[in-house]
């Protein structure tokens, strides 16, 4: 990968984040934002109001950091899965993690209202879903990958039915809308608390996948071929699944189900840098981070009430992706 591509991958999210800090119903100039940020590192004379400081530091900054982490995380998870399953239609929720985590969160909201317990439940049930998929597909050492996909479909279907069940019994006055909005994805209530819960897990998942980025090329090959390259195939597959699961479950726990990002961003990355996952994965992180950050900025500034993320990722993403697809013919062959 060329040096300037790597530089751009770092610079772009930072620039977009700085701009996004100033955008919203309460606009703040870029110099002010920089001053507020740097005042926490260097002693600077205070030329801004307390209001501005609160908006930047306590409301927008955690939200922006989460958008970057979730956007980047879901994209690297999606790219890893597309590589591993050798299938361009796969997204991070293919093994049922999102459905499981979504059910966990719904159950948490139903029983204990929103908050810490719902997030905890989301993580636990996300992992349960993967366990369930493993029980169906992975009991034999050499299960072919399509078995995992089928098992994931079964798991998703089961947990989606359970989500419907929680909705069905939920109080339609307050809990039903809370569950429904949560499942559409939102960073509207993002706080440092969310960042502390979700951030480390997402980062660990991203590091695992980033380290294995070249090995994912090998997983794209048919099983026997991959084995003949001397790699511990089953262990490698499960490490990738583990990393992607951490990211997906933690994302759902703090932001609900954010669709589309993990499916389309890896394609955009491949159109830019080719099919070698060694490059596709890091570039996906950068583009995914920028994409979700832009979407979330639109979500919180375009109307008085927040628009759920999954609606926007698809409404903005679909035409954009359609144009790319027509221009490049997919670009993955």
């Amino acid at each position: 990968m060329k040096k300037w591509t790597i530089a751009l991958c770092w610079i772009l999210p930072i620039v977009v984040a700085l701009v996004s800090l100033g955008i919203g119903r309460y606009t703040i100039d870029l110099p002010e934002i920089l001053k507020i940020l740097f005042s926490h590192v260097f002693p600077l004379p205070k030329t801004w109001s307390n209001m501005e400081e609160t908006v930047v530091m306590n409301i927008r900054l955690p939200r922006i950091l989460l958008a970057i982490l979730i956007g980047g995380g879901l994209s690297i998870a999606g790219a890893s899965f597309q590589g591993m399953f050798a299938n361009p239609l796969v997204s991070p929720d293919i093994l049922g993690v999102s459905a499981g985590a979504g059910f966990g969160a719904s159950l948490g909201i139903l029983l204990f209202n929103t908050g810490f317990i719902a997030q905890f439940f989301a993580l636990i049930f996300g992992l349960c879903a993967i366990g369930f998929t493993f029980m169906i597909a992975g009991y034999k050492k050499d299960s072919p990958l399509f078995m995992y996909v089928l098992a994931g479909v079964v798991t998703s279907a089961l947990f989606q039915a359970l989500v419907s069940l929680t909705k069905f019994v939920a109080d339609p006055e307050d809990k039903l809308p809370a569950i429904t909005y949560f499942l559409m994805g939102s960073l509207g209530t993002a706080s440092y608390h969310d960042l502390i819960i979700g951030g480390p897990i997402i980062i660990i998942g991203m590091i695992i996948l980033y380290i294995l980025r070249w090995r994912i090329n090998l997983l794209t090959l048919p099983d026997d071929e991959a084995k003949s390259l001397g790699i511990p195939l089953t262990r490698l597959k499960w490490t990738v699944i583990f990393g992607a699961t951490l990211i997906t479950a933690a994302s759902v726990a703090v932001a609900g189900i954010v669709g589309w990002v993990g499916l389309i961003i890896p394609h955009v990355a491949r159109m830019l840098v080719g099919n070698n996952n060694q490059h596709v994965l890091p570039v996906s992180v950068s583009i995914g981070a920028v994409y979700l950050l832009l979407i979330d900025t639109v979500a919180r500034s375009i109307t008085a009430t927040e628009i759920p993320l999954s609606i926007l990722t698809a409404i903005i993403g679909a035409p954009f992706f359609a144009i790319l697809l027509r221009k490049t013919g997919g670009g993955w062959s």
Partner: peptide, 26 residues
């Protein structure tokens, strides 16, 4: 031991050099 499978199309087209360097995996 080197195992040479029958040539087959791939979903994601790696470049030939990326394909060949995979052999260095061990």
């Amino acid at each position: 031991i080197g195992y040479v499978p029958q040539a087959h199309k791939m979903i994601f087209g790696f470049t030939i050099e990326d394909l060949v360097v995979m052999g260095r995996a061990p």
